[in-house]
């Protein structure tokens, strides 16, 4: 029974840490399916985290913070679009530039606005997204298995967590079941054909950029106003890149990408619990060192898995064909 509780709490932690990965990887899915490689997930998330924490503090409302986070992230996405769609710039370079720009700009603006070394002021409880208690969660907490599932795993997350998990089926529906989705996929595979059909490639890609911006905005807002209570420099800590890894590992499909995000989230939750779990004293020198280092190896596992995947050891990952190639209309 105790092990079951442990397992439930672990899944609970998985859900919490997967949220920014899920949102960012769905953002990446829209961008890459439209043919724009998006390295700047990290930067957009970081920018949104800063905007959300600042505005939430100024207005006293978490929802205003969410709005500001989305606006900031969409503006960055449009900047990426402007460089790489309108001006046919190198998409990777543009994405990296945005990451560097945001990493520096948030700190500079933070210092000039708040004078706390790039940190934003700490948010009060009512300025954040707080856990929602589902009806009857307290009463059911003692019921074995089902009650625990309900009260620990389903109840007690903030609204952004539920939004993130609803975004995935929504993404699937948009990409595979709507006219917009069909055109989106086509523009990422064969933009010439889409152009011949009289649809603007640039307009389609810009729309995908805006969607990516909105999703990264929610992800960044989650980091600074739900998971913690202030913006701190570089707080996205590589999550954008792990999301990108999940997108590749999930082969650019919503369902498998969700599973990859959950796997990576689970690994992070596991590494937190594995540290110090082994009795290192009983192991000999090299073994003890290995056991001490194991949690950090687990942290690196997402990237190792992606490398193995790309090298062709675990199935194949085929990117959208036109991804990364600027579309130049023939004259």
């Amino acid at each position: 029974m105790e092990q079951f509780t442990f397992f439930i709490l672990m899944l609970d932690a998985t859900a919490r840490v997967s949220v920014p990965l899920i949102l960012a990887s769905m953002a990446g899915l829209f961008a890459e399916r439209s043919g724009v490689v998006d390295i700047s997930l990290e930067g957009k998330m970081l920018g949104a985290a800063f905007a959300a924490a600042s505005v939430a503090w100024l207005t006293g409302s978490a929802w205003m913070g969410l709005g500001a986070g989305i606006v900031a992230s969409v503006l960055l996405a449009l900047l990426h679009g402007w460089a790489s769609i309108t001006h046919n710039g190198n998409q990777v370079v543009s994405g990296v530039a945005i990451n560097i720009l945001v990493a520096g700009l948030t700190v500079v603006l933070g210092i000039s606005f708040f004078r706390q070394g790039g940190r934003t002021p700490q948010l009060a409880r009512e300025e954040r997204f707080l856990p929602l208690e589902w009806p009857g969660a307290q009463a059911l907490a003692d019921v074995p298995i089902l009650g625990q599932l309900y009260s620990e795993l389903l109840s007690g997350h903030n609204i952004l967590v539920y939004i993130a998990f609803l975004i995935v089926p929504l993404t699937w529906w948009v990409v595979y079941r709507t006219r917009f989705g069909l055109r989106l996929r086509a523009v990422g595979e064969n933009p010439e054909a889409v152009d011949t059909a009289g649809i603007s490639v640039a307009a389609m890609r810009y729309r995908a950029m805006v969607l990516a911006g909105v999703l990264c905005g929610i992800a960044g807002t989650y980091l600074s106003t739900a998971q913690s209570a202030a913006f701190i420099k570089d707080m996205s800590a590589g999550k954008g890149f792990i999301a990108l890894a999940a997108l590749i590992f999930g082969k650019w499909r919503p369902k498998t990408t969700l599973l990859a995000c959950l796997l990576f989230g689970f690994l992070e939750a596991a590494s937190a619990r594995l540290q110090g779990a082994f009795n290192v004293e009983n192991a000999s020198g090299a073994m003890a060192e290995f056991l001490k280092g194991l949690p950090f190896l687990i942290d690196a596992l997402p990237f190792i898995l992606v490398v193995l995947l790309l090298a062709g050891f675990v199935g194949t990952a085929v990117a959208p064909k036109a991804s990364g190639i600027p579309y130049v209309k023939e004259r």
């Binding site: 919490r16 998971q227 701190i232 939750a269 937190a272």
Partner: peptide, 13 residues
């Protein structure tokens, strides 16, 4: 030294 999100998650664990 600068990852409050992970710090919070470790504390929760």
């Amino acid at each position: 030294w600068n990852d409050p999100v992970k710090g919070g998650e470790l504390a929760k664990s």
